[in-house]
Nucleic acid binder design. Structure first.
Lengths: 348, 348
DNA sequence: GCGGAACATGTAACCGGTTACAGTGAGGGC
DNA sequence: GCCCTCACTGTAACCGGTTACATGTTCCGC
């Protein structure tokens, strides 16, 4: 039975502190702190008394006071440098965010979301993060040329990236899908279906996803003794519009293509309508495969064959790695396997 | 010219504090604090010295210490009770988040994202938020029956919701689109096109959006002397799947419909394929209008006529309102106008 | 020449936790 | 019976800011 201690109501009432709890429990405030943290010896009797007092007073710790004393903030930042990540084109990103939030919640940590799109926002973000105000930073598929990376590394903020950070492999831990072999399996799936003039729409070549997925494409072709035709490779950013433009370019200079491997679902989503307009039926005339298995893939017309990344797993690992770094360990980067999801855009 | 004070390097080096700055500047630490905050008198000379010292030491304030002293946290929580909000179906939500992040960044505030989907996460969220650890909470279209609302209100946490909170109109400030007249204009647009057997797919009736958009629908019909047929009204949650199910139900019991007003784009996105499968051409046989103008709308096939909410405006207003409440004012709730965006699913 | 504003700055207390260190009392070995 | 250890608890210092209050200065009017 819990008897709540009546506290003066009204907006001016003060929240109970560790001292209040101590008074109610009849112990010293240090003991309360010890019970709270658990890494020191306290008698079972004292634990009971304190637990009781906490329940009766409705005490919750003041995280700022705690952070001040420990030097650890209990919060990590999820840094977003491209706002379009947030948009529905990249629902991966949303899944990742969800996963990270869940993993952090389980560790009693807080998720600070920073969107650094404008120059002002970027400056503010860098100084906030470098200031040691968060325990670590999670980055999503950063571009290798981004000056922000250097600034954060120099400030020695613990960082974990989703996707390898080209040029920083040795200093920034990362969790990434096995892009290269994922892409290879996608292209091999097309080869198995009899396609021989396979084109690709790549992602930005300053991201590991962009580079590795292109590698996977060339891997598959050369393994089958096929030449890699530059005309069949179109570069794009990760956006749907990029996919559109690239697809038009491909139809222009490699009109005989019989399949397209797009390095992301968004790119594929941009490519599909262009193919339709050009009178190419998918999958009869041209087979299409994407990458990510974002929510988008299944709802496209036709539903898109794609390479699934285990995003829940990735987000968990990111949080775990960050915790490792914070704890002083120096964890290795991690690669997780992908799986091919076959849908109507390229039937088996 | 800034001469940086050489500080011992290596990971163990300590960040400069206000005392360090004071020493370098040759003033007391209180003066530094005053310069930092600006709401007390300091001589121009001292300001110069301190500014200089800050630049040279690379000082940034410790937000935890500040929060502890001031009692204000400088962070607000964006609380998400339905994780599907994050998914691409509801890109509104993403735009809203982006807008809020921007508005907060401008105010030097931090955005804490809390996803409270599971029971554990909800408990943790409530106790965290009630604990006075954030300056306020932003809620997205909460359901009126959610017990979380009562808990937060009782804890007297400043709250601003996007969308009126049914049953809490007097205690929770909100910013909302003018759902009712937006819906009415959508239906009037269909009436103007000659449709007379207009059905609707509504959102949940425990959200203001769900209720008001249905009201707008009936408003338009009755204003034109048309009866409101219950058979032409199908209820759904906000999801695409909900739209699918509801559309099937409508085709079942009101097969003669010549238009559908869906209370959200996601609902419309679910309805479109069902219509296609049923052999109803959009817009020839059935005209369709959605609500939100989410990123989804323009990319559907056919592109969707919809009611646009000024989400950037809404997010800004939410942050402004929250600041008002925190400052002790008691702001009114706000309604912002919508605009009809006509696309091919219901040509003019 | 002196009292009192007005201004500028320093001192000290405080916010609410954590934790090093000292102290207490019980129990065990001899 | 004494000493030492061990288990536990309390005191005090500290984290890095803010701010009430006290303490000079300077300048002015009279």
């Amino acid at each position: 039975m819990i008897t709540p201690v009546p506290n003066p109501s009204g907006p001016g009432r003060k929240r109970p502190t560790i001292r209040d709890v101590a008074r109610v429990a009849g112990v010293s405030y240090a003991t309360v702190s010890r019970v709270l943290n658990g890494h020191d010896w306290v008698s079972p009797e004292a634990v009971r008394l304190v637990r009781d007092a906490i329940a009766r007073t409705g005490y919750t710790a003041n995280p700022h006071a705690r952070s001040l004393a420990t030097g650890r903030s209990g919060s990590i930042a999820f840094l977003l440098t491209e706002p379009q990540h947030l948009l529905f084109e990249d629902s991966n990103f949303a899944v990742l965010l969800r996963g990270v939030a869940q993993a952090l919640s389980a560790r009693e940590q807080t998720l600070i979301l920073m969107i650094a799109a404008t120059a002002t926002e970027r400056d503010r973000a860098v100084s906030y993060l470098s200031g040691g105000h968060v325990d670590g930073v999670l980055l999503v598929s950063p571009h290798s040329g981004d000056p922000l990376l250097g600034q954060l590394v120099r400030a020695e903020v613990p960082i974990v990236a989703c996707g390898r950070v080209l040029g920083y492999e040795q200093v920034i831990s990362s969790v990434a899908a096995d892009d290269r072999s994922g892409a290879r399996s996608a292209v091999e799936h097309l080869l198995a279906a009899g396609c021989r003039r396979i084109a690709t729409i790549t992602g930005p070549q300053d991201t590991s996803g962009g580079v590795d997925r292109l590698h996977g494409y060339t891997d598959a072709l050369t393994a089958h003794g096929l030449a890699v035709e530059p005309a069949r490779i179109a570069h794009a950013d990760w956006s749907r519009e990029g996919g559109e433009t690239a697809m038009r370019a491909l139809l222009d200079r490699a009109a005989d293509l019989d399949a397209v491997f797009a390095a992301s679902d968004a790119l594929a989503a941009g490519a599909l309508p262009v193919l339709r307009e050009a009178g190419r039926h998918v999958p009869r005339d041209v087979r299409v495969v994407g990458f990510d298995d974002s929510g988008l893939a299944a709802t496209l017309d036709p539903p898109l064959t794609t390479v699934r990344q285990p995003l829940e797993r990735i987000s968990e690992e990111m949080v775990r790695l960050l915790a490792d770094i914070t704890a002083g360990r120096n964890p290795l980067s991690i690669t997780v396997p992908t799986t091919l999801v076959v849908r109507r855009s390229s039937p088996a």
